[in-house]
Structure formats: structure tokens, C-alpha cells
Write a protein that binds this DNA or RNA. Structure first.
Lengths: 258, 258
DNA sequence: GCCGCTTCTTGATCCTTATCAATGTCGGGT
DNA sequence: ACCCGACATTGATAAGGATCAAGAAGCGGC
């Protein structure tokens, strides 16, 4: 494990403000794994023995039932995942699959649980991280139950725009089929939803989405701070409590994950 | 606050194994509130200053957007709610409304956060509670995205049956319109879904649902331990890790809440 | 640069769910 | 016991979304 990687892990909300000694204990038995595209890191139902930290690449969390599958989250670096299962020493409720070549740090769950018992500040950091994840899922549930598919897409684009750089063009980092599943629709309907946004100033060319009329899109999307976590991208730690909220909630990407 | 109430709060997963001194600090400034039916305990967007503990009655958590409203959870005693917002000292993402006359214990958020910093065991307990809540929401999301409305109703009935007493008859504790919203459908479609279950051995008379053919219902519902949290009702603390999981996840009722 | 695969799009149709409207049923108040 | 209002059910219709079936476009491999 490179020292640059260690610094990146230390920068996670999960580890900020934690005693160096605790950090050492937690990461002592950790090892870095290079994983090819399309690999299953974890299958739902498996016992979870590690906390995963995505250092490079993209990971998809998904769930299955009765031959159906749905994407629950798409993760980009630096993110941790399946912390909840680690804390409870339980089996995974979601499967994790790489969407490209990835670098993943695997921290033994025992070490995490031990570090929590030894260092209150770490236990508090874990609580904050889980609370952020919890709130991300509440937002996601409201999004799913209160909006139709075109509204979800419109708000997704606005969130991506805010997270990326607030420019006129939003880049989709993943296949549209994956995005469709994340947003709770079929690929066919994602295409149609994009078409439905055209009168509102949205044009698509491959993975590039251009928002030519922000006001019109917002009029349709009606973004809501109690559902959508708009926030400029940035890695800095911010002391302010509310900023901390979106930082924690944001670390794990698009639609409320872990 | 009656001593019997104190005992009930102490019995919560959130406070088990916590030092008496910590419990005293956490609950020192708490006060018991009697709330009439239909009262709003909390509105989404409000700053959350208290952790709520439902001691008697029923509370509904819901979210709104653009004149639409959806029920996110129905809580029965003894349950805590909005722990995540308390931990982050953030604003509420859900509103809380009483569905009948209730007794609610309100614990100042400051006291909770202070207790977490002073007692690692409490911080760990909070983590476990939040992790359980997180996993409840993951289950709920899979339920919503992978199943149609009749399948969701069928599984809801199986879960209620397991939670209540495993008898042939399941009692619905709330209005059907509330249940419909919780399950992500309209009241009209809930009626039709009940009708669709009739060939599978389900009959309804008012709030009483009779399951005359469990095997047939299960064949349709295809319950899955990675979505549905089947468990016999019971308040005991169980040492086994997996049992602990559902205990924490279960405390806050029907469909994964807080 | 061309081929072939995968992904994306578009159209037609079907199924699921929502909406609107009307009737039926239950329970509380007087 | 009656009436009233809220809730639940049922039916008709419409809208949203899924599925099936072709085409079109992009991309990697050679």
C-alpha cells in the first residue's frame, strides 16, 4: 500500500479526527487489491469480513430477487462501502461488482469493530458516516416514491451538474443501462425520458449531456434540498455541521449507497 | 417520567450494555410528552433538537414533494426515531405525525451527542442502531424496485404474520390508506391487490386479514431473507450476532424507518 | 479501416398502476 | 336508531412504464 493511498484513506470522513494510533490499528491488516472489470467483490448473502474502500475505478452495488436485478448505487473514489454490515458483523444485503478496473483497499471487519471499541472518536465518526448513509437512503426512497421517471432523470442531471463543475455539459460516467437501473427504469424508458427532456433544453450525444436551459430544466425537476443533495464537488473537510452532512452523504456517490 | 417508562427505554437496543452513568447523562434533560391524535411532532426541514422515543401509540413518518406525500414508516412502541438527524445535528428529512394518542419521550440531541463522546459503548450502540436502520432502508429499496404492488402486499402480510404471532389471522393496525402509501401504491390499488390475493388464500374483513393457505401465499410472495426481515416478536436481547441484526432493525417497525 | 459485437434508440403493443367517479360500509355523535 | 362523514371498494378510463422487436450507432479487435 502506497503512502499516497494511506493519505487518501485518512482523508475520508470516516477517519477524520481519529487518533493516529486508532488509524494504525484499523488499517494494520488491510491490503490493497487490484480487481479486473466485471468482477464480483461481494455477493448478497455472503458474510462480510472486510470494509471496502474504493481507491480507483467504479463499483456498482446491486440487489437481486426472483431473476430481477436493480442497481442500488454507483460508487466512485474515494468511497467506503458495506460499513453497516461490518458494524453488525452481518451478511451483505447488496452485491458489489466492478464496472471497470479497480483498486480496492480491504480492511478486516474485526479491526474496524475493535477500533470502534478503543476510540470513541472513531465510533462517533462511524456513527456520522452511517447517519449520512441512512439519510442518503431516505432521500433516495422519497425520490423513488414521489417522482416519476422523467423527474428522477431531470434531478439526477441537476445533481451531477452540481457535483461535477456546474458547467453546461454533464458527463455520464457509466453505461446508460446502469443509470437506468439506478434510477428505477428500463434502458428504453431512459432513452424516452431523455427525449422528453429535449423541450426543456437537454440534448444528449453519447455520454455527454448538454443543459442549454437550466431554468427550464429546474422548472420541471423542482429540486428539493430535502431530497436532492446538491453540492459542489470537493475533498476538503469542512468544520460546519451542515457541510459535514453532505460530505458524509456525498462520499459514497450518486444515489445513497452502502 | 415513570420508573416503568425508564425501564422500557433502558431496554431499547440503543441503550443496552451502556453504563448507567451514561444513561443518566443522556436522559437527564428528557421529558415525557402526551400528544393527541393527528399532531405533527416534526416537520421535514425543521432543525432536529430531540431524539424521540415512542412509548405508546402509533407514529407515521412521511415525506412530501410537490403536493405529493408518501408514508416512509409506521412506528409502534417502543421505537426511537430520527436518530440519524440527531447524530449529525441536521434538519429532518421526514415529518412525524401521530396516528393516535401517543406518549413520546423527548431526549435533547445535545445530551445524546455528549453521551456518545463520553461512552464508547454508547457510541457503538448508536452505530449498531444506525447500521440496522440503514439495512432496513436497503431492504425497503429492494422491495420497492424489484417487486410489484401485489408482491409487496403479500410479503407485508407474511412479515406481519411472523411479527405478530404466526397465527392464521393478521390484524392491520392502521388505516388501509396509510398502508397503501407505505407500500407505495394508491388505496384503490391496495383494494385490488387484496382481491388479487384471494385466489391465494387471503380474505379480508375490515382490519382482519385471514391467511387460509400459507403455502400458496408464500409461493406468490417468494419471501427472501435479504429483503424481508421475518422474525417472531419478542423483546429479549439475544447475544447471537445475526439475531442482534434483526433486533435493531426491527425495533422501528414495518418498513425500515428513522 | 473494416468487421462484429454490444449498447443505444425507436416504434408498437401490453401490462401495471393512477386517476376519476360512484357506490357501499363502518363508526361516532346526538 | 338515525344521520353524517370518513374510509373502503368497485368500475371505467387514462397514463406511465415494461416488454418485444427491429434498426442505428458506437467501440474494440484485428
Amino acid at each position: 500500500m502506497r503512502t499516497s493511498d494511506i493519505e487518501r484513506v485518512k482523508g475520508l470522513p470516516l477517519f477524520t479526527g481519529v487518533a493516529p494510533e486508532t488509524f494504525r490499528i484499523a488499517t494494520a491488516g488491510a491490503y490493497l487489491q487490484r480487481v479486473p472489470n466485471g468482477a464480483m467483490l461481494l455477493t448478497e448473502g455472503d458474510q462480510v469480513d472486510f470494509l471496502y474502500v474504493l481507491l480507483d475505478g467504479t463499483v456498482e452495488l446491486h440487489g437481486t430477487w426472483n431473476d430481477r436485478e436493480t442497481v442500488l448505487a454507483i460508487l466512485r473514489p474515494v468511497s467506503t462501502f458495506i460499513l453497516a454490515a461490518v458494524v453488525l458483523d452481518a451478511t451483505a444485503l447488496m452485491s458489489a461488482r466492478t464496472l471497470e478496473r479497480c483498486e480496492v483497499l480491504m480492511i478486516p471487519g474485526d479491526a474496524i469493530r475493535t477500533a470502534m471499541r478503543l476510540d470513541t472518536r472513531f465510533a462517533v465518526a462511524v456513527s456520522r458516516d452511517l447517519a449520512g448513509g441512512y439519510r442518503g437512503l431516505v432521500r433516495n426512497t422519497k425520490n423513488l416514491k414521489l417522482r416519476n421517471s422523467t423527474e428522477r432523470l431531470a434531478n439526477f442531471l441537476l445533481m451531477q451538474r452540481a457535483a461535477d463543475n456546474a458547467g453546461r455539459v454533464v458527463r455520464l460516467h457509466h453505461e446508460k443501462r446502469v443509470l437506468a437501473s439506478l434510477l428505477g427504469m428500463t434502458p428504453e424508458n431512459l432513452s424516452r425520458s431523455f427525449a422528453a427532456l429535449q423541450p426543456h433544453g437537454v440534448t444528449v450525444q453519447g455520454p455527454m449531456v448538454t443543459i442549454s436551459n437550466l431554468a427550464a430544466l429546474e422548472r420541471l425537476a423542482k429540486p428539493d434540498p430535502l431530497i436532492d443533495n446538491h453540492a459542489p464537488r470537493g475533498g476538503e473537510i469542512i468544520a460546519d455541521a451542515d457541510a459535514e452532512v453532505w460530505l458524509t452523504e456525498r462520499t459514497r456517490a450518486s444515489a445513497g449507497s452502502r
